[in-house]
Design a protein around this nucleic acid. Structure first.
Lengths: 205, 205
DNA sequence: ATTATCTATAGATCTATAGATAATGC
DNA sequence: ATTATCTATAGATCTATAGATAATGC
C-alpha cells in the first residue's frame, strides 16, 4: 500500500492540481474531500498525511491556480511584444476563457469566495493580484509612473468584473457585450498611457 | 402552534430577508437551513411549508437582495440630480460598501457563486444586472446612444471588479487603490459621454 | 522500522420528510 | 377542517481520525 517518496510527492501534486480545478468549478464548499481524492485516484484516508486540513489544501490549490494563470499572462505578453496588453486582454476577455471555469482565472471563479475564507487563502490571492498588477504595468510601458499603477488596477477590475458578469448572462448578446465593452475600455486606457509616454518623451528631448 | 395567514406571510418575508443577508455574507453553501430559520426566529421544520427547496429560497433571497440594492441606486440618483453617476459610484466604491458584505451588492458577494447555481438563480441575477445597466445609462445621459450601453457595461464591470478585488486585500493602501482607480475610471468614461453629448448638440443646432 | 495509503468509523451537519400539536378560519 | 409550526428523524454527506496493511528505506 505504501508508495515511494517520489510517488507520494507526485500524488500530492496531483491532488493540488485536481483541487485547483474543482474548487474553481464548484467553489471551496462545493466539493468534498472524498470526491477530490477520488478525482486524484486516491481515497479520502490518504488526505491527512498530505495536508493539514481542507483549508490548507485551499491555500495550495489557490496558489497553484494563481501561478498557472500568471504563467499564461506572461506567455501572452512574450508572444506579442508589439501589443502585450492587447494580447492579455484578448485572452482574458475571450468567450473561451469565460466558458472554461475550471482552468480560467481563479480571481473571477473564487475571488468572492476567497474573501470569506481564512487569512492564508486571502493572502495567496493578494499575492496573485499584486503579481497581476506588475505584469499589467510592464505590459503598458517601461516607464514607471504612479498613474500607471492606478491604470493597471482599473484594467484588472474591469476585466475581472466583465468575465464575472458575462458568466451570469443567459442572453448571449449581453454576455458578449460585457466582454467587448471591457476590451474597448482597456484599449482606451492603453491609449491614455501611450499619450502620456509620448508627452514625456517630447519633454525630455 | 399555528399562526395567522398574515403572520405566516410575515414569517416568509422574514426568512427571505435573513437569507438575503446571510447568503451574501457566507455564500449559498456557507449557511444551512437550520441556522437560517433560527436567525429568522423559527425552526427548520417550518421551512418546507414556505419554500420548495433551498434553491427556491436562493432565488427569492437573490431577488430580494438585488431589488434592495437597486433601490439604493435609484435613491442615490434622485438625491444627486446634478451628478447621478458620480453619486452611484461614490456609494458603490466607498469603504463602507466594501466592508458591508451582508448588505452590499449581491453581484459582488454572490455573482461567481450564482454562475454555478441553477438557471433560476442565474436568471434573477441577469434581470438585476439588466436593471443596473438601465439605471447607469439614465444616469449618464438622457439621449439613447448605442455607445452608451457599452459604457454602462464597462462602468458596471469596473465597479464590480474593484470591490471584489478590494475585499481580497489585506494591504489597506492597495484595497483603497482599487476603489480610487475605479472611481477615476468612471469619471473618465463619464467625461467621454459628456463630450459626445455636447458634440451632438452642436451638430443639431 | 517507517510510512503512504487503505478501509472503517466517529461525530457533526446537511437537505428533506413525517407526524404531532395547537391555533386559525370557515 | 385546515394548516403553520414544532419536534424528531431519515439518509446522505461533511471533515477528521484510528487502526490495518503492505511496500519503502535504512
Amino acid at each position: 500500500m505504501r508508495v515511494s517518496r517520489t510517488q507520494a510527492a507526485e500524488n500530492r501534486q496531483s491532488v493540488i492540481n485536481v483541487a485547483s480545478r474543482l474548487f474553481r468549478e464548484r467553489g471551496f464548499d462545493g466539493i468534498g474531500l472524498k470526491d477530490l481524492m477520488k478525482s486524484a485516484g486516491l481515497t479520502q484516508g490518504a488526505f491527512y498525511k498530505q495536508f493539514e486540513s481542507k483549508e490548507d489544501l485551499a491555500v495550495q490549490a489557490s496558489e497553484r491556480a494563481l501561478d498557472s494563470a500568471s504563467r499564461r499572462w506572461s506567455d501572452a505578453m512574450i508572444a506579442s511584444p508589439e501589443d502585450p496588453l492587447g494580447a492579455i486582454a484578448a485572452i482574458f476577455l475571450s468567450t473561451e476563457h469565460r466558458d472554461e471555469t475550471m482552468d480560467g482565472c481563479p480571481i473571477v471563479a473564487l475571488g468572492a469566495d476567497a474573501a470569506r475564507q481564512g487569512s492564508d487563502v486571502k493572502a495567496s490571492f493578494e499575492a496573485g493580484i499584486k503579481d497581476r498588477l506588475v505584469v499589467l504595468q510592464r505590459a503598458m510601458a517601461e516607464t514607471d509612473d504612479k498613474r500607471l499603477k492606478s491604470r493597471a488596477m482599473a484594467i484588472l477590475s474591469t476585466m475581472v468584473g466583465a468575465v464575472t458578469l458575462s458568466r451570469l448572462m443567459n442572453d448571449t448578446d449581453l454576455a458578449q457585450g460585457f466582454l467587448d465593452a471591457a476590451a474597448e475600455q482597456v484599449r482606451a486606457i492603453q491609449a491614455q498611457a501611450a499619450a502620456l509616454k509620448r508627452q514625456k518623451k517630447n519633454v525630455n528631448s
